[in-house]
């Protein structure tokens, strides 16, 4: 009881452990698995991420070159980032902010040739990507 009193009274003077969250955000660690982003210019639409994703939140349309992603079904395990052969997927260090509407991300890219060398050459020629991010909100 007396030890606890000591503890409690010390807490009155030392710095608080909590923070006013939305206004005061802690600096993220460098290797945190946060929001998933796809650099659609580099994406080769191979579909590996779709196959390996444990929560099946990614759908890749190889013919139309569309990459669909449901961030609310995603579990942020980073498996897709690890296996992405084109290294187009990456994760930010910040978590997804809470929102009140469901978001579905659908990205339109361009099909590339199979060979990666040619792919890189083609990339240099190409100008800006077609619609880099198009979050479409649905109910």
């Amino acid at each position: 009881m007396f030890k606890m009193t000591h503890n409690i009274l010390r807490n009155l003077v030392v710095r608080k452990s909590t923070r006013r969250y939305p206004f005061e955000v802690r600096e993220a660690f460098d290797k945190v698995r946060g929001e998933l982003v796809n650099d659609i210019v580099r994406c080769i639409f191979c579909g590996s991420c779709e196959v390996r994703c444990p929560s099946q939140c990614i759908q890749v349309d190889r013919k139309a070159a569309v990459w669909n992603y449901d961030p609310f079904a995603c579990v942020f395990c980073g498996v897709c980032v690890d296996i992405c052969p084109a290294k187009s997927l990456s994760q930010k260090t910040q978590y997804l902010r809470s929102v009140d509407k469901r978001i579905l991300i659908s990205m339109q890219g361009e099909l590339k040739k199979k060979s990666r060398e040619k792919d890189k050459e083609a990339e240099k020629d190409k100008p800006a990507p077609v619609e880099p991010e198009g979050p479409a909100a649905t109910g």
Binding site: D30, K31, V32, R33, V75, F76, C77, G78
Partner: peptide, 15 residues
């Protein structure tokens, strides 16, 4: 949790 987050990338489900 900080240790977990900085070394593995996630706080609880470390994957």
């Amino acid at each position: 949790m900080d240790i977990s987050e900085s070394t593995t990338g996630n706080r609880v489900i470390v994957s």
